[in-house]
Design a protein around this nucleic acid. Structure first.
Lengths: 341, 341
DNA sequence: CTGAAAGCGCTTACAG
DNA sequence: CTGAAAGCGCTTACAG
């Protein structure tokens, strides 16, 4: 039969549709005999309930949405996995959605919640600096923003967030390079699309240089985006300026690898000729050769915390909160001490 | 207002719900005045239609599903992008779903189609060797299997497929290595999860060796899975056997990179000490150092062809077909001629 | 160009 | 433990 519905099953089983529905939802108030019979019939006819109809009726969709900025980002994939795991533990399902680079993140988030009747949403990446508070409030659905741009002055009770201390992380990376004796330290960072995060990391870079009494040189800073290619090209530009750069800090591993490839392609040796520190700690940094020193973002914890906050709000009716997770400098083989001049 | 519905909007606009619905669906039979007024009200109240209700009513969901095996696979991501693009061109929407490694692919596919009322489904990766033909037929929804395991003897009129000639591709890779003078050529391939594809690539490996009168040595073959780590470990095992291996063919770039890292970590130089050929041509291979020689799978074409077949069946009521796309050996810097002994 | 009515496939009180 | 009925928010013929 083409597409069975609950009525068809009920008819075959000789019961009312409501009884079939009870079986479908694992309700206890069905006799074992009836349940088994109905289950067998469903199996036999390969019956699969129509999700749309269910969602339409059910106030509780038991679904948590995850909205990911940009397709294919190895940094997010581990976070997503940890989110999925925790959501499943709570008996909820996760629906994963990707948001293209040029779309408005908060609008997409709101649409998603309404369309799919989500009970909560976690946003991975994206820009949430300018939001309509009333709009979010009227949704009455908790949203957790993770690893994304949010503005500091924002009303803290509207959204939750899970972030890292971007300024401090960047500071540590550059401070480390300074301590190794580097004074000409290049930086490849992301531009406009990443306003607040980018700004904070640049702050950290500058502060570390200041601590070591090194003048900030604008020419040592290049803008890239989240691709190998862009890291490669930015590094080429830096080399071409011939500034005597001995170290580089890139604000994503993907860009760091692109930059490292540019260096290696020119015949430079890493770390002998140039030291490189990345950001994120994606798996590839361990398999690139030489293995890349990087700032580790606690991906699993970012996922766990996001889900925890969501369910705290959902079940215990707690308030929104804002978690800042620790990063860690992971020293591998792309940095080297140089003699101070 | 909490969650507006079509009735609310209709009431405010002083029209019938059906008129609002017409505006929502861009039907031509609404006066411009009415349309504008309703649009303005929707905007003002931030109305977003409930997808579930729409899907429930509409026979045509205008949605094509893409079911991807395993989360986060850089090889698939480019295919997905090309699929999205083509689907959008047809005025359809794409819904992306990930299928975990241990779940039954065809069951998931069927469930997805029924639940979401999909008009077509493209499966990327996965195992479709054993399927219930009646079940698929009764769905009456075209399915295209791309880059996945399908069995040769299968009824060709049930499903479409887009694949490559796995045996020939592997043959070319190994033939190339043989022509460079290598005789001790290791292979790292995927195991059970990938039965038919894996088998074909092993065939290709063996045939190339035979062509060059090289005996197949079982000890030179290792099983891995689709991770850096597994490639790394398999390579370690090969090295530990001390078989005088001078070249390696890995059936995925991810494993090839893991293997390359193992070689570099031992102080070997690629390609001087060992030549490596990967498979897929993911972006990583260009940014690894040295850049990896690999078998390019035409990712964009795989995507385009899958969508094309789907719409041919959907709109022109054509039959299922089976496309085999060409691969290409992309020579980069991980292979070297050695003197024949 | 617009409206009233039926119905998509489910779930959920309410009765019994 | 089971059934009849109402309704979730939409769309779609059918009238007019």
């Amino acid at each position: 039969m083409q597409n069975m519905n609950i009525k068809d099953i009920a008819k075959i089983a000789g019961v009312a549709p409501s009884t079939v529905s009870r079986v479908l939802n694992n309700r206890p108030d069905v006799s074992e005999r009836t349940r088994k019979r109905i289950l067998a019939i469903m199996e036999q006819y390969n019956y699969i309930p129509n999700n749309s109809a269910r969602n339409l009726k059910m106030i509780e969709s038991n679904a948590i949405g995850v909205l990911v900025k940009g397709i294919y980002n190895p940094f997010f994939s581990k976070i997503i996995q940890s989110i999925e795991e925790k959501i499943a533990e709570q008996g909820y399902s996760m629906t994963l959605n990707y948001n293209y680079d040029d779309s408005n993140d908060i609008d997409t988030a709101i649409t998603l919640i309404k369309e799919k009747r989500l009970e909560g949403l976690i946003c991975l990446g994206g820009n949430f600096e300018y939001i309509d508070e009333q709009q979010i409030l009227s949704l009455n659905t908790p949203i957790v923003i993770a690893s994304a741009n949010i503005i500091d002055q924002q009303n803290k009770s509207i959204l939750s967030s899970v972030t890292i201390d971007n300024e401090k992380a960047a500071f540590e990376a550059v401070d480390y390079l300074c301590n190794l004796g580097h004074t000409k330290i290049g930086m490849i960072t992301t531009g406009e699309s990443d306003r607040s995060i980018g700004r904070l990391r640049i702050q950290g870079y500058k502060k570390a240089l200041q601590k070591h009494h090194i003048k900030v040189q604008k020419e040592l800073m290049e803008i890239g985006e989240y691709t190998f290619d862009s890291g490669f090209n930015a590094m080429e530009r830096l080399f071409d300026k011939d500034l005597g750069m001995t170290a580089l800090f890139a604000t994503s591993d993907i860009m760091a690898i692109g930059a490292a490839k540019a260096a290696l392609s020119r015949g430079f040796i890493i770390p002998d000729d140039i030291s490189i520190v990345g950001f994120d700690d994606i798996e590839y940094t361990r398999y690139f050769h030489p293995s890349l020193t990087t700032i580790k973002q606690p991906q699993v914890e970012i996922g766990y915390n996001s889900v925890e906050i969501l369910f705290d709000i959902l079940k215990k009716e707690k308030e929104h909160r804002h978690v800042i997770l620790k990063t860690e400098l992971v020293k591998r083989n792309s940095c080297k001490q140089i003699s101070k001049e």
